[in-house]
Design a protein around this nucleic acid. Sequence first.
DNA 1: CTGTTAGCGCGTTCAA
DNA 2: TTGAACGCGCTAACAG
Lengths: 340, 340
Amino acid sequence: MVTIYDIAKLANVSAMTVSRVINNTGKISDKTRAKVKKVMEELHYVPNSMARSLVLQETKMLSLLITDITNPFYTTLARGAEDAAMKRGYKLLFSNSDEDVAKESEYVDMVLSTRVDGVLFAPAGDDSLSHLEKLRKHGIPFVLIDREVPGMESDTVLGDSKEGARKLVEHLIGLGHRRIALLNGSLDVSTARHRYTGYKEALKLSDIPFDDELIAESAYSRSSPNRTIEAIERLLQLPERPTALFAANNFLAIEAIRAMRDRGIRVPDDMSVVCFDDLDLASVIDPFLTVAAQPAYQFGTIGVQLLLDRIQETDGAEWRKIILPSEMIVRKSVQPFAEL
Amino acid sequence: MVTIYDIAKLANVSAMTVSRVINNTGKISDKTRAKVKKVMEELHYVPNSMARSLVLQETKMLSLLITDITNPFYTTLARGAEDAAMKRGYKLLFSNSDEDVAKESEYVDMVLSTRVDGVLFAPAGDDSLSHLEKLRKHGIPFVLIDREVPGMESDTVLGDSKEGARKLVEHLIGLGHRRIALLNGSLDVSTARHRYTGYKEALKLSDIPFDDELIAESAYSRSSPNRTIEAIERLLQLPERPTALFAANNFLAIEAIRAMRDRGIRVPDDMSVVCFDDLDLASVIDPFLTVAAQPAYQFGTIGVQLLLDRIQETDGAEWRKIILPSEMIVRKSVQPFAEL
DNA sequence: CTGTTAGCGCGTTCAA
DNA sequence: TTGAACGCGCTAACAG
């Protein structure tokens, strides 16, 4: 591996001069600069960022910890984060916690030892608190994205889960539905709680009694579809069957639709379905699901922005909390409720 | 930041002893080991992997360079790669070239300066050759995934593009179609060429004359849908309009279907459509597109496997080339051709 | 079993 | 405008 010393020797200067040429610091005569640059090119020199990090105490790397790399919401977010980071000269280290707090723990240790300059963190659940405390204790700046964690203040980028949920459910109510089921993610995740709240608010505003039996809890990720299937089975066997379903995210909606189809329930004819997060590709080819679409790309860019601001901050500024609105897109998965 | 020296001082041992405890090397008495471990925990010590990399000359990081992080084929591949890397103690640095050879160049420089131990490389096109030569010159092992580059030998994981294409087109032919258009990606990409070849082979086997007018070239990524739209318009205006379309990847199929829909052409009634790569989510909710599905996850795991084998190889073993079959999944986007 | 020395590649500090 | 010495945090090699 060629180092600045190799360059220095061939250019008849000191290593320090080479370093100055690389970083454009100090005063260097044009002549020696040209000479050094020439040698650098001849030797195909590439600076060693490890060594530089060690002395500079910064890596120019950010870590993005998401819970599911196959979910289009997160991939679009990742893309936004990457574009923003790249633009500011930072690399992005992706990690995938699989909605699993234990796996998340391993990643936090990795992040710590890699000495990244900051972390974009989509917590797997409220138990992520200890991981965040660990980061904080080590002085690593982080921004929470998509989800917040009780007991931990920080810069945060969230969606308007409550409002989005309320709008979706109100849409169903407006079409005459009164038995509306909620297929939620784990209540251990803040967005699930907020969407739950929005659901209840919508009912209340229309004087529809809340029925606990209509609530089912599964998991956001696709790793365990069984809980979703069981939930759907229970809902379908209810004496007074729901006529509409609000799924708390895209994967839940899909698994639910699949489970219902397998049981002969058609959407939207037998059951209207709405959900949070759009499906990207799927929506183009077949504009089917009525959704509350979130500006996923902006989650990423804004998250990086907050993070880099925090990193460059000298005095501890106030925590910033950005709430991004979602947009309801009405499509075909919903039908008016027709009394029999 | 806590260092091994801090630990050493508090534990009344030398830094070297601490290092040995951390790495489980050498012989250490249980007593001192316990003492050191206790201090490490008290101080929340986390090893600095930068420093370690510097001396060990290895980073335990791999870089995954893909061309589109929003394409489900690549995200699933990424997931496979990450799982495999993680399992072997490696981190994965993702990058996204956007099918852009220039952007790719920046990433290669980044990769070089980060001193990753190896690269999983999905080249943006044949011009990626110079980037690969750069990696090779610097002695960084890499594995080509999904695409190969003329003039560069290396370990490679490919799909059976030719066979997959042939099967898809034969399926269309079997249904009576004879005017079959090909909407291809850039011929600068090996998979596009192979799919082209498979297309032609299928025609030849059925004695259907090849018609150059039925061939359109666009781009795999969604960044420039205009070329696809123009291509579709041209195909639709052909004197003898095609009755079926083979799109060389999922995004092309989607853009094509959208463009046709906008022009009043229904799929499959007016036009049958098949393509390479499945759509994941979209297929669950609405099993629509007939596709040649590739084992994306395996692309990732096998790629990492080849890469790590190569990294640990002492003597230069033969290049290995793994070809993964694709599976044709027949769905609703295809109809038999009915002569008028 | 444990410690000392040296150096990985680079940038800061100070001197020339 | 340039260079020498030092240290970032760690481990290999050798010594004890």
